[in-house]
Computed example of a mutant assay.
Amino acid sequence: MHYIWLAIKGLFIGISNIIPGVSGGTMAVSFGIYDDIIHAFTNVRKEFKLSMRILGPIAIGALIGIAGFSMVIGWLLAEHTLYTAFAFVGLILGGLPILSQSLKDSFKQEQRKANSVHFLLFVVFFLLVSWMGVADISGGGPETISLGFGPLVALFLVGLVSAAAMVVPGISGSLLMLIMGYYYAVVYTINGFTSSLAVFDIVALIPFTLLLTAYAFGMIVGIILISKVIDYFFKHYPSFTYASILGLVLASPIAVIANTDALIGLNIENGFFKLFVALVIALASYALTFVLGKTDDVTKELPEESQI
């Protein structure tokens, strides 16, 4: 059952990673498994079995979320933008109780109280994510990408940069891909792979597989590199790290609503009713994250000296 809960959390992390403005790292924080994922990545060689018991189910869930919902999410954002955006806002905010408790525990661990440095870090990272949310990012249609050495290298680099961002709560990897101009190309490749796999079209499947392999390899390298940096800060400056993450997470709803244009199109006639429904959905999503964050998972089985 522990592994099923981890897979479910990974599912939501995967879905969040394909929506510009939503951070997979934020979802991991909301579910209370962020620091354990970072530790598992940075110690995968030293604690391989324990790390894979964490990363395996999460990776499976994330892959299902990305492959299975890349088309569905596009439809939801196009047809039910307000409700979809508020659902993710609720999912994000549902982790605040766990994050707040982690911040309090870090103060006890360091035997210190909140000071001006904590407040400054909170404000800086809050403003950073808020700016990314309201910055003018050019969109575009569904571009395609062809197989070749150049595209393979480009997808590797895009995967590296976006994955590094995905690890940092509040920073949307998909938004960075949109800025770099590769978001729709990656979505096209994922959809092409799943469509070809569904009908088992080998000829079409091969190029999509090679392109996704380059992108996935870049993601793995990016996650490992940035995980080592974050793991260092968790171990040596936990209260400052959690204060920064709190700023990133609290600003994430702004980025989600701004990047999805969720509030555009509301009018006096039905605006109040739609907002009411959206808030109900947000509250239900908040409760879902809160419950999932409280579930026991295999990260609790890590030996104490292996935990952050």
Score class of each variant (00 low, 15 high):
Ser227Tyr: 04
Leu6Arg: 03
Gly148Arg: 09
Ala243Tyr: 06
Leu6Phe: 09
Phe119Tyr: 14
Leu6Trp: 03
Leu225Ser: 11
Leu128Cys: 05
Ile92Ala: 13
Ser102Tyr: 03
Ala28Arg: 05
Leu93Arg: 05
Tyr3Val: 08
Ile224Phe: 13
Met71Phe: 14
Lys108Asn: 02
Ala282Gln: 15
Asn17Pro: 03
Ile37Leu: 15
Leu63Val: 15
Leu175Asp: 03
Glu47Lys: 14
Ile73Thr: 01
Ser196Gly: 02
Gly133Arg: 08
Ile171Gln: 13
Phe48Glu: 07
Tyr3Lys: 11
Lys274Ile: 00
Leu248Gln: 02
Val168Phe: 02
Ile33Met: 10
Gly74Asn: 02
Ser102Pro: 00
Thr42Asp: 12
Leu128Ser: 08
Gly150Pro: 04
Leu248Glu: 01
Leu99Ala: 01
Asn43Ile: 00
Leu212Ile: 06
Leu11Val: 03
Ala7Met: 12
Val29Leu: 09
Ile224His: 14
Ser195Asn: 12
Ile308Asn: 09
Lys108Cys: 00
Leu250Cys: 11
Tyr237Glu: 13
Leu178Gln: 05
Gly192Ile: 01
Ala164Trp: 05
Leu147Asn: 15
Pro20Ile: 02
Thr260Asn: 11
Phe208Thr: 05
Ser252Gly: 05
Leu250Pro: 07
Phe217Pro: 00
Val203Asp: 12
Gly222Val: 13
Leu103Thr: 01
Val186Glu: 04
Ser244Cys: 05
Ser146Glu: 09
Tyr83Lys: 04
Lys300Arg: 09
Ile226Glu: 09
Leu211Glu: 03
Val89Tyr: 04
Val72Thr: 11
Asn17Met: 10
Lys104Ile: 01
Ala154Val: 08
Ile19Asp: 00
Leu246Val: 14
Ser100Met: 15
Val277Trp: 12
Ala62Lys: 08
Tyr237Thr: 14
Leu128Ala: 13
Ala114Gly: 10
Ile145Gly: 01
Thr189Arg: 00
Glu143Asn: 10
Ile268Gly: 11
Val221Trp: 02
Gly74Arg: 01
Glu47Pro: 02
Phe208Asn: 07
Pro207Met: 08
Gly247Thr: 10
Val29Lys: 07
Ile33Trp: 07
Ile19Glu: 01
Val277Thr: 13
Asp231His: 12
Ile58Cys: 06
Phe156Ala: 14
Ala216Arg: 07
His236Cys: 04
Arg45Asn: 11
Pro142Gln: 10
Leu128His: 06
Phe126Ala: 07
Phe12His: 08
Leu93Gly: 12
Gly222Ala: 09
Phe119His: 06
Val129Tyr: 13
Gly133Leu: 02
Leu152Ser: 08
Gln101Glu: 06
Ile308Gly: 11
Pro169Ser: 04
Ser138Asp: 14
Thr81Tyr: 12
Ile66Tyr: 06
Lys9Cys: 11
Met132Asn: 13
Glu301Ile: 09
Ile268Lys: 08
Leu147Gly: 12
Asp35Ile: 03
Gly192Met: 00
Ser252Glu: 15
Phe233Gly: 07
